[in-house]
Nucleic acid binder design. Structure first.
Lengths: 386, 386
DNA sequence: CCTCGTTGATTTCGTGACGAAAAAAATTGG
DNA sequence: CCAATTTTTTTCGTCACGAAATCAACGAGG
């Protein structure tokens, strides 16, 4: 076996800042890093030396665009050794486990999905360990495991409460660590996705950033000062009481006219089925609305207006620099994006800054990637919970 | 004339932290400061020495509760010399100027109001200078002047745009500095009140804090990480497009059913007058609602429900640790506080943390005090704008 | 081909902020 | 009066950083 690097390197605040900046913002020369971090050139020589020696960073040998006409000594960009360590991320749903392997940069290099046939904590941990073994096969230096679960998670290790798994106080991280011998990190699935987007996605470098996910439920994540704001109700219950239209539809979940009733995939399917009597998929409904079917168009239009109002309220009160729409349900924006944007504008002050609204289609592997990012944060960089 | 202290003392980050902590959180011993700021005892000796020498802090001679049975060397609490400098604060409205003198602690020690008969910038500056002279009479060491104006203010010195004064790019701070020889700071009135509450009021020490003011208009201030978030629409125009109830009342200002239409004093008076034909004051309407007059009760009830929804939306999306209701219109809470709170709860997730809602009746002198606090921040502590 | 100017990285040195620990100070209790 | 205790001061060592000199690597121009 090759010499294994320590999984946890104690980094000074300055070193951590350098490591994160390079990790998140691609290859950067020392001078550029000095400019971005407000440090002197000398300090960067000092800070980068141990990072290079530890193998986390390298001076990129290939000078992609070598100075291109600029004179002077060419810069020596530093980059993370993306494949020096790999990370495994899981998203656990009621009946499936989605797994990915990512590089340090959080690029997905392998995927593996398995049905979940039991909710017994030990068996679930067994499955996660087995999947980790399979996933790790091609990637020897494994840095750790991140696990995203719907529900309330404490200390990044214990599932305090998960309604759909019927778990209470399950020390999932410990169970997986026992079976794999790898450090493990557990987090709420939405929280993990938000962290991933904050570090490597749409929220890079932003001070105020909001993530709104639409799917089987609603997810909401608030990032202030680069840190996610934790909150008590983040166990899949967002939006049940966000009343958009008191005279809106009544559905099995969520109050009448709530964001959940108007926007989630099950509620939209329920509304169409209740009106037409036919079972239809979400995609069929969106296609129907685009084709002008009255019932689908009405439900989708209402959803789009609700989304516009919701985004406007967030923009009005939080004033984020960007709002990211993610999840399986964002196909709504393709069909009715104009309605959303028109409604959004109508609920904003004319002089207010326009809302930077980004849409990202995300499947379950993106959620698993989020969990892997959390592992990178905690295990490589020693980032701690708020 | 006595030796005058420099109005601007260059403070190191550590010194600034100590000064602010003592200024905001009353007398504190060095040990207590070390605990709060996460510093060693030795550092506190070093940091406090120049602050004491400069006259900003003193070791409080009176040991109010002198150890009371505790043994060991008694602590030597440090306190700001509250009356070492005084500050003048103004709130400029369309037809009045409200002025106060405060101590370093922002306690009001004098008041002076004058009608504003002209909107000519030079004349207004003349009046402010004259009022400053009158106010300063009893308080020799004057540290500076703070001025709060409705409208858009840039660089804490120039009124970029003020609809009710019909001003554009008026360098008010410079005009007042010329006439008084004192440093002057200008800021949007809502922003100033928010800063004051953040430093000395309800928002002390909080990380996420919201101020909502109800009066002739709506005001909204967001404080994140102890810093107010600046925004483009803060020129008295908040809430015109916050649609609470699309079928709500239509009033001269604000969209139908907007927060402005439902909650501001002029809109409430307009609604009652439109229904009854009689001119009534806001206080009369509140009293009528309390007494069970149907029309007043209906309008006030609607306003209370709107306020509950508004506060719930803010709490849901911003997740602040506290929301402060201020302004001349908060009498609504006395009459219909229960309705507000019930509505608030109905629009919150049952598992969400309860909203810490604080109500503060504030008159125009509180707005003036806010401006004085801004002067303290900028002129004494060298705090800079975001 | 050689030198000069330019730009990036390194080295060296000085400064300043901080913590740890010892000492001093101020009080209570015996 | 002495021990115990808590606060404050002093002393000393460490470490992070910036400034500036130096080294390194390249292009331009004679």
């Amino acid at each position: 076996m090759t010499a294994r690097m320590a999984s946890w390197l104690p980094l000074s605040p300055g070193e951590r800042a350098v490591a994160i900046e390079v990790l998140v913002h691609g290859p950067l020369s020392r001078t550029e890093l000095a400019r971005r971090l407000g440090l002197s050139a000398g300090s960067l020589t000092r800070l980068t030396k141990p990072l290079i020696e530890s193998g986390l960073l390298v001076e990129t040998p290939e000078n992609g665009a070598p100075a291109a006409g600029r004179q002077g000594r060419p810069s020596q960009p530093l980059d993370v050794v993306a494949d020096s360590r790999f990370f495994v991320g899981f998203k656990v749903t009621e009946d499936m486990v989605y797994g990915v392997v990512t590089t340090l940069r959080s690029d997905i290099v392998a995927r593996l999905d398995r049905p979940l046939t039991t909710h017994d904590p030990g068996r679930v941990a067994d499955l996660l360990a087995a999947m980790t073994g399979e996933l790790a096969a091609g990637f020897p230096p494994l840095g750790g495991v991140g696990i995203g679960v719907g529900g309330l998670v404490r200390e990044r290790s214990v599932v305090a409460e998960s309604p759909f798994l019927h778990w209470r106080d399950v020390p999932l991280a410990a169970l997986v660590e026992e079976r794999t011998g790898l450090p493990a990190v557990v987090e709420n699935d939405v929280a993990a996705l938000v962290e991933a987007e904050t570090w490597f996605g749409a929220g890079r470098g932003l001070d105020r950033f909001v993530v709104l996910t639409i799917g089987a439920g609603l997810g909401y994540g608030l990032v202030l000062g680069g840190r996610r704001v934790p909150c008590a109700e983040e166990d899949r219950g967002f939006g049940r009481h966000w009343i958009i239209d008191p005279y809106g539809p009544l559905t099995p979940t969520g109050e009448r006219g709530s964001a959940v009733s108007l926007l989630t995939i099950p509620s939209i399917r329920y509304q169409v089925q209740a009106a037409t009597g036919r079972e239809t998929t979400y995609e069929e409904i969106l296609a129907g609305a685009a084709a002008g079917e009255p019932m689908a168009a009405r439900v989708v239009g209402e959803a789009a207006r609700a989304l516009g109002i919701l985004v406007a309220q967030i923009a009005n009160f939080v004033m984020p620099q960007k709002i990211l729409l993610a999840g399986e349900g964002v196909g709504l924006m393709d069909v009715a994006g104009d309605t959303v944007r028109t409604t959004l504008r109508a609920h904003r002050h004319p002089m207010a800054a326009p809302v930077d609204l980004e849409v990202r289609v995300s499947d379950f592997h993106d959620w698993a990637r989020g969990a892997a990012v959390l592992a990178i944060q905690v295990l490589v960089l020693g980032a701690v919970e708020a």
